[in-house]
Structure formats: C-alpha cells, structure tokens
Design a binder for these strands. Sequence first.
DNA 1: GAAGGTAACATACAGACTGTATGAATGTTA
DNA 2: TAACATTCATACAGTCTGTATGTTACCTTC
Lengths: 207, 207
Amino acid sequence: MNVKRRTQAERSAATRIALVGAGRRLFAAQGFAGVGTEAIVREASVSRGALYHQFADKTELFAAVLEDVERDVSQHLAEVAGARAEAGFEDVMLGAVEAWLELCERPEIQRIVLVDGPSVLGWIRWREICQPHVLGLIRAVLEQGMAAGEVEQQPVAPLSHALIAVADEAAMYVASSADPATARREMVDVARRLLSSLTTSGATPGR
Amino acid sequence: MNVKRRTQAERSAATRIALVGAGRRLFAAQGFAGVGTEAIVREASVSRGALYHQFADKTELFAAVLEDVERDVSQHLAEVAGARAEAGFEDVMLGAVEAWLELCERPEIQRIVLVDGPSVLGWIRWREICQPHVLGLIRAVLEQGMAAGEVEQQPVAPLSHALIAVADEAAMYVASSADPATARREMVDVARRLLSSLTTSGATPGR
DNA sequence: GAAGGTAACATACAGACTGTATGAATGTTA
DNA sequence: TAACATTCATACAGTCTGTATGTTACCTTC
C-alpha cells in the first residue's frame, strides 16, 4: 500500500494532471499574465522543474488547460444536444445555446476560453483547439440539419464560425451585464431569430 | 526657427503621439506581450521616464493605442456607410462589412483590436472602448433601419453585439484562411443571409 | 525679467518572472 | 545488478516592469 513504486507513465500523468488542474484554477481566477509559474507549481504541489519537464513553456501548459476545459464543455453540450436530438435543428441549437450561457457563468470559460485563449495561443491555434470540440459540435448539428432538409444548403465552415462567434459574444455579454437575467433573455431571442432564419421553412414560427 | 520653446501641452502631445504611434506599430507586429517598454520608447525616440510620466503603465498605453485604432476604423467605416446612406439598411451594412474585412487585412486591426484587446484590457473595458466607435456605428445603423421600418423592432444592444461578433470572427476567419478570396466570399454570403433575416420584408431580395 | 514653482522628462534601481543548466532521484531494461 | 533513461529539484542568468530620485524646460507672479 505504498504510494511509491509508480510507473513512469503514472508519474508523468499525475504531475501533468496536477499542473493542468492548478493552471485551470489559477488562470481562470487571475488570467494568464496574472499568475506566475511559481504560484502554479505551489498550487499543484510540484516543483518548477517538473513543470518545465512536462511542458515546453508556460504557454504550452495553457494550451493543455484550454484543451481540458474544451473537452469538458463540448462533452456537456453534446449530452444536452443528444438529449433532444429528435427535437429538430432549431430546438437542439437553442438548447445548446442556453446550456452554453449557463456554463459561461463560470469564469473558467470566460477567461480561459474566450478572453485569454486567442491572445496567448494566437487566433489560429486557439480555433484549432476549438475545432474538434465545440466548433465541431456546431458543424455536426448544422450538417445534420442540412441532411434532414431543415437547414438551407450552404458552406458549413463559415456559418459555424459565425454561430460560435455569436455564442461567444452572447456569453460575455450576459456574464458582464449588470442585469444578466434580461440580458440572457434578449440574447436567446437574438439567437432564436438568427437560427430560424437558417431553416428552409423561411417564415418564422410564431415563437 | 528653433524647435525648442514649446508649450507644455505641445510637449506632452508630441510625446504621447510618438508613443501611441510606436506602440501601434510594435503591438501590431509582435503583440502586447511580445514587445517591451524599452523597444517602444526607442521606436518613439523617447525615454522610459516619459512613457511612465504620460501613462500609468504599459496597459494604459495599450488602451490609448486601441482608442487610436478604433477612431480611425470607425471614421473610415462611417464614411463608407455615409456614402451609400440612401441605399437602405441591408446595403449599408453589407458595404460596411466589406470595408471592415478589407481593413482587417492589416494586422494592426487583427492583433490590437481583435486578439489582444480583450485579454489586455479585460472584456468589459475592451467593449467600452468599442462602444462609442464601431459598436456605436452598428447601433446607429440598426436604429435608423428600425425607424425607417426596414428592420423589425427589437432591443438594439444585444443585436448589435451579435452583429459585431460576427464581423470580428469573419475578419479573423478571412485573414487566417489559406484561401482568403473564397473565405471572404463565403463570409459575405453568411452576412447577407443574416442581415436579410432582420428586415421586415422577410423574404430575401434576389441578391 | 528674475525667482519660485510646477510639469515634463531622464536615469538608476529594486523586485519579479521566465526559461535553462546542472545535478539528484526514481524507474526501466539488458 | 548494472547501465541507461526518465522524471524531477535547485540554482542561476537574463529580461522586464514599475518606482524613486534627480534634472531640465516651461509657466506664473511680482
């Protein structure tokens, strides 16, 4: 029952997990530039040497943290979307938007994913990390909607970028609003209008 | 004909202009974190003491640079929009979008306004600086469209945020694309669809 | 127009932080 | 078990930001 005798892979995995977890908490609270590597390794109960052995630099640790957050977020959203998969394109999307806005109440998402991500990693790398996760989810729902004839045929890449942009801005708008409740209602309304404009039915269904 | 004998206000203005200009060039090229104050003052032919006398810290200089860029951008877009003011809501907006995408070919806008801005200043302050400029322009065009009965009545604040978000993402999407020409065409198409969904006529006018 | 005062600027310094280099400890393999 | 590789610990060099202190330019008042 000794904690020693761990395999190398286990040792590496343990410190990486500790570092990513610590980075996730601290980056969320104080931003990338606001937290030093010393604070991170202290929070992770690890030495700076371990950090720089596991990650090339502070930026690469941040990338791992972002990846971690994105995985959680997309998994949650996929569950929400899957739960009402039979409800049709518009309802699936609206449900995901509401779930997304709820998730973004946590500063974790706001600061790491939406604010610091592009600046620390550069826009291209940032979107590349979103690609297999949230952005991929939007893309999948869009393609499914098109296959089902609910959504007008059109290139999915630019459209999914436009939609994720609205979702991101909506999240920050709501989270930063003095009156989040009405901000949220208004933003969901905007999303509803935009989404219904994509459906082939054309005319907006009453509400 | 001596360059000396300047009033205090002139001295301050000159160094501020030099610093903002230098910061604008360097921040655009290497990002906020990538350029030190030493490089900035060298580019501006000024001492570090002057910088820290005129600005509280490096972040405040960045805010001034962002303000400077935003002023130029909104002025240019206002001219474009004003030139076809009689063309109606949708055409004004589309023209502005095309002008915006063209502006964003300059890394100045990409990096300072879209990538580093939120991270360096925080999302709230960043949008506050956009508020009187580009965001205000969108808001004005929307309100005018509503007053003219072209746009369905609805809260303007959340809608203008959604629109600026799409414009921002479109800019980065096009600028980062391997094939900017088609990316741009696709994004303009997306914008056209979204905008036409806002008009009261409902049905999309042929083109 | 001279003197005292204030604003603008210059320079030197302290503190913090990142990344690296070197050495120790732990696991792996022959 | 002995040589080797991986993981981690620590000390150090270099850079950067912001401040403190001194100096110069301008302004005001008499």
